[in-house]
Write a protein that binds this DNA or RNA. Structure first.
Lengths: 174, 174
DNA sequence: GCTTGAATGTTAGTCACTAACATTCAAGCG
DNA sequence: CGCTTGAATGTTAGTGACTAACATTCAAGC
């Protein structure tokens, strides 16, 4: 989509906040109104939601004898290992812009809400108490996001490696 | 401050998004402009930033032989144990509204950015690599926030206990 | 050729937030 | 006691994200 192209270019040149939706629309040869028909908000040019179903399944497949926090971390690890490396160049640009823009970091966190809910539901269904599940889900997702952000800024790393290394940090007991 | 009172009341009655800054100002007998002189944004009625210095010191005091993730978690635990229980009723109302409003959850995450930076800096100064430090800080803070949210909705718990229980979840190796 | 439906445009409005300028009013000083 | 000054507040006008109602274009498909 031309809007994504235009948006990424402008964000990189001028910064996210300094770039106007009208500007992006104009650069894509289209009206502001049209922008909002494709994306519900400016931030959705950059935020895409990921692979929930695989993630949840992988968490469910962890040995139930492990504590919930470890099941969540190892589930995410397994799910990412199984995933094909996606078209990283665009993703990297998006994540990099997100990592550098405070308001987008917040938006990203908000947008992982669904994933968080899903992980909590999975853990609770396996017998974990809700408040434990919430902490485990939030904390593991935070690690994942931190890994993503680091990856975006470090040109040399592969996505899969970055995620694995992030999970290593929190799986202290492994 | 009358604005905080008015804001909390209105948010609880109508929800955060449905409440207008002008409304809050009017309820406090003041102008919209005045609101923005006291708070840089609507969300700052609810978000206050906490006890960074104590936190950082406590993390620095952990035995350097522990992995960074554990040092961060145990530092936060120690810092909170040492803190007096603050005027919880208002804090609980604020956190509850925040927990229930997606955009505020995002804002909260963004506003912990400073704390996160500070923790990262402390860990890095103690010899941890930046990317490991980032993951540890993000993940531990996520657990803390999740604990806060759970506490806000569970009338029976004490703040300190809620935090301790949240940290228990991620300190699997303890 | 005509109809219909999807994509796009237009206009007008709301709300958060900013900037420039004006007003009030209560010390504090000569 | 009048004057000055400075802080708190108000006024006006604007920008930018986003919404809603309505109009237009235009390319199938009959």
């Amino acid at each position: 989509m031309a809007l994504v192209e235009a948006g990424l270019d402008l964000f990189e040149q001028q910064g996210y906040e300094a770039t106007t939706v009208a500007e992006i629309a104009r650069a894509a040869g289209v009206t502001e109104m049209t922008f909002f028909r494709y994306f519900p908000a400016k931030e959705h040019l950059l935020l895409d939601d990921p692979y929930d179903p695989e993630l949840i399944a992988a968490i469910g497949a962890q040995p139930i004898t492990d504590p919930p926090f470890l099941r969540a971390a190892r589930g995410i690890r397994a799910a990412w290992r199984a995933l094909p490396e996606p078209e990283t160049p665009i993703i990297r640009r998006r994540v990099r812009i997100t990592a550098q823009t405070p308001s987008l970091r917040g938006a990203m966190w908000r947008s992982t809400g669904n994933t968080e809910q899903a992980i909590v539901a999975r853990l609770v269904a396996d017998g974990t108490s809700p408040h434990v599940a919430r902490v485990a889900a939030a904390s593991v997702l935070a690690a994942l996001v931190a890994g993503l952000f680091t990856w975006a800024e470090d040109e040399s790393a592969s996505l899969a490696d970055a995620i694995e290394r992030a999970l290593d940090v929190i799986e202290v007991a492994s």
